[in-house]
Amino acid sequence: MFLKFATGAIAAGTAALWLTTAAAHSIEAAPSQAVQAAFDIIETTIVTKGETAVFTTRVRGEAGKDKPDATGKFEGSSVYAYVWPTSLNSGEIGFDKDQGIVALAVTFHPDFDDAAFGAKNRHIWHPHWVVLAEDKACGAGLKVIDIPEGTKPKVPETWPGVPLLIDSPEYPTTFKGETVDVEIPLSLIGGIKGASFDGVTAGLKVNGNLHAPLLCVSNVFKVASGNLSLPGKVMAAD
């Protein structure tokens, strides 16, 4: 699933180098002038530090500088994201087991709010857990999984109430120069130790007709590994 998605979505010329040894903490990628600097991944890392897991992506430019233009309406609006696809099971983040590809995403979308408990988050970069699956109806072949009308799947406490497998936890998220960091207590994602991961920057779009698939990955800017093979391994920081 990962390889099929990557093959159809990575733009030509987005060359990357990656570390695949079991001892490697990070995935390193060669810079590409074909990719917007704020989304041109240079390195992606997930490490554990004490009782915290730290997700970090470093880019060629200023992380978080570029944001999608507001459209004034929800339908057809855009989302920009820094994403860490992982080998975690959806059951480990509060959904039913074996639902799809679990990823942490730091997103910005100026046209709607999707924070937990009705809070506002449309004007800030903020984290989500998302569960992804293939869908040929999407521009990049991947979507956030829809919740069919009339069904009641298991969802986390901080699920924002939208018909998607998406969670809106308030994890500390920091942009500083070329890096974006997210810190998550290990008590909330115990399965992260030893997990595999990758790094992606992408654009998503809300379906203009508000039908499933509701939220598509419409454009992949860069994949850290070059082939979405999840070569990174979560280990303790040196």
Rank of each mutant, 00 (worst) to 15 (best):
D146K: 11
A23T: 14
I147N: 03
K97C: 06
G13T: 03
P160V: 10
S229T: 07
G8F: 03
Y171L: 12
A195L: 07
P163W: 01
G226C: 11
N209S: 14
A34I: 10
E43I: 05
G208M: 12
K97D: 15
F39R: 05
E170H: 10
A115L: 02
H126E: 09
E178S: 13
V131C: 07
F197S: 08
S168H: 08
D40F: 11
I189N: 11
L165R: 13
S77Q: 01
N219L: 08
K143R: 15
N227H: 10
P110N: 09
L3A: 12
T52M: 14
A37P: 15
V54E: 15
A70H: 09
L165Q: 12
L204E: 07
I101Y: 02
A30E: 05
V206S: 00
D146S: 09
K193E: 13
V220F: 06
G232T: 07
A34N: 15
I189F: 04
S168P: 03
N227Y: 10
I145R: 14
H123K: 15
G50L: 02
N121Q: 10
L228V: 05
G141Q: 02
T14Q: 13
D135N: 15
A70T: 06
T179H: 00
G190R: 13
A22S: 14
A133G: 15
E149P: 00
A105F: 02
A236S: 09
I145D: 05
L142M: 15
F175R: 05
K205P: 00
V47A: 07
T48W: 04
G203P: 02
L3N: 11
A23W: 08
G199N: 05
K233S: 06
T201L: 07
P85E: 12
V162T: 13
A37T: 09
I124G: 04
E75D: 14
D238A: 12
K233W: 04
W84I: 01
D40C: 09
K222Y: 05
D113E: 02
I93S: 08
P231I: 06
L204D: 07
I166F: 03
L214I: 11
F74E: 03
Y82P: 04
T52D: 11
R122Y: 04
I93T: 03
E92C: 08
A119Q: 12
K205V: 02
E62Y: 00
K176S: 15
I46D: 00
V223S: 07
G118K: 01
T20W: 10
K120M: 09
P127R: 06
V223E: 12
N121R: 02
H211V: 10
T71Q: 15
I189Q: 13
W159Q: 00
G199D: 03
G177E: 06
G61D: 11
A237Q: 11
G118R: 01
V234D: 07
T48K: 15
P153S: 11
T174W: 01
D167G: 13
A53Y: 00
D69K: 15
I189E: 13
A105R: 10
A22H: 12
I27W: 00
K193Y: 00
K154I: 09
K193Q: 14
V131D: 13
I46W: 03
I101P: 00
M1H: 10
W18N: 14
G191A: 12
C138W: 03
L210A: 13
F39G: 03
C138I: 01
F117L: 08
S77V: 01
F55L: 12
V144S: 13
W129K: 07
A202L: 10
F108Y: 14
G232W: 05
D113C: 04
V206W: 00
D181N: 14
D111L: 01
A24M: 05
T21H: 09
